[in-house]
Simulated scan of single mutants.
Amino acid sequence: MSTRTITATEFLTLDGVIQGLGRPDEDTRGGFTHGGWGPRYNDDVMGRELGKGMARGGDLLLGRRTWDDFAVQWGQAADDNPYSTLMNAATKYVVSRDLNSADAWQNSVLLRGDAVDTVTELKAAPGPDLSILGSGALVRSLHAARLIDRYTLLIHPLTLGSGARLFDGPAPLIEFDLTEAVTTTTGVIIAHYHRAS
């Protein structure tokens, strides 16, 4: 029996920062003051590439902080664009040790407990493939357990010098093959990797 694949899509800087991509107030933990660094790099090329991922469908897998933020940003938005339509219609699995209910956003399912244990079980169950957006802490724990099959990295041409990074601390030796790379008009490299080992 084949298992579901997990693809993590991450927006990051050249120095690996993933914190506070969209808005100045998105994530100020640790005194982070560079929030909102990403939108000025958006262009039609990026939109088309992200649209390809959306077209494949599947379920979403989110960490608690990302789910909370998306529930406000997308869950209360009208379905007037393809992103909000997709986000609201998709089954969203939120991984959390302390969330009591996932009722705040339609089509959300709470995976309560240890991330590696609950996601291993979910990945082995029949169903569509899974996509992680953001959710850095979740990605780090699933990466260490070799549960992430693919990465789509949107590498932005700037350094911030501070902020949470995609891999804060050691990561295990896992090799990936580059399967495709696209450069946007604003200098963002969109690199698609599949796990080789």
Rank of each mutant, 00 (worst) to 15 (best):
H192S: 12
F32S: 14
R48H: 04
T33S: 13
R97N: 08
P24I: 05
T85K: 15
L111E: 05
Y41L: 09
D149F: 09
T9V: 15
M54S: 07
D59P: 13
G163A: 09
A90N: 10
E175S: 12
R195A: 14
P82V: 00
E10S: 06
Q19G: 02
G36A: 11
Q19Y: 11
A77M: 03
A124I: 02
Y83R: 03
T120Q: 07
V72K: 14
T28I: 11
E175A: 14
H192L: 08
D43W: 04
G30L: 08
P24K: 10
V182T: 10
F11G: 00
L130P: 07
G58W: 07
V45N: 01
A144Q: 09
A171L: 11
A8H: 06
L12H: 01
G51N: 06
S131R: 07
G35C: 12
V119G: 02
G51C: 06
I132N: 03
Q73S: 14
T9H: 13
H143T: 04
I174W: 10
R23G: 10
S108R: 09
G161D: 03
M1L: 13
G75L: 02
L147I: 00
Y93S: 15
H143Q: 06
R56V: 00
A144K: 10
V17H: 10
G22F: 09
H194G: 04
H192G: 02
V94C: 04
L99I: 05
G113R: 06
Q76L: 13
K52T: 04
R146T: 02
K92W: 12
D68Q: 14
E180L: 04
T183W: 01
M46Q: 13
L178R: 15
R23K: 14
L166T: 00
L110C: 07
I190P: 13
K52C: 08
T185Q: 06
T5F: 01
V45G: 02
H192W: 12
L86M: 15
A196E: 02
T28D: 10
Q76Y: 09
K123L: 07
I189G: 09
L50I: 05
H192K: 15
W67L: 05
V94D: 03
F167Y: 13
N107T: 04
A124N: 13
G53Q: 13
T185S: 07
I6P: 12
L12A: 02
A196C: 01
M1F: 14
E49G: 00
A77C: 04
A124R: 12
L14N: 08
L99E: 09
L110Y: 09
E49P: 00
L99N: 04
R65A: 13
D114K: 15
